[in-house]
Amino acid sequence: MAARSELAHRLLEFKASLMGRMVPKVLSRKSDGIDGVAKKMAAKGLPAEPDTSLAQELEHPDDVPEIVTRHQK
């Protein structure tokens, strides 16, 4: 980091701010206008196929009994 010049700082800050301004559009409930464009752009950066292994890991079997007190005073 010691080597970053003022110009480099400013360029990086400009780029990061530009990306940062898109985030609220990506996280809005609207899907038309700029918000829609932002969402499409953001989606481009994601893998085409969703990660199905995660979905499996998130599932819980239906038949697991709840843990309850064995004996209550």
């Binding site: 800050e13 990061a16 701010s17 940062g20 985030v23 609220p24 996280l27 409930r29």
Partner: peptide, 10 residues
């Protein structure tokens, strides 16, 4: 919206 994110300032 479901989230409010402020643009970054450095």
């Amino acid at each position: 919206k479901y989230m409010d994110v402020q643009p970054p300032k450095y």
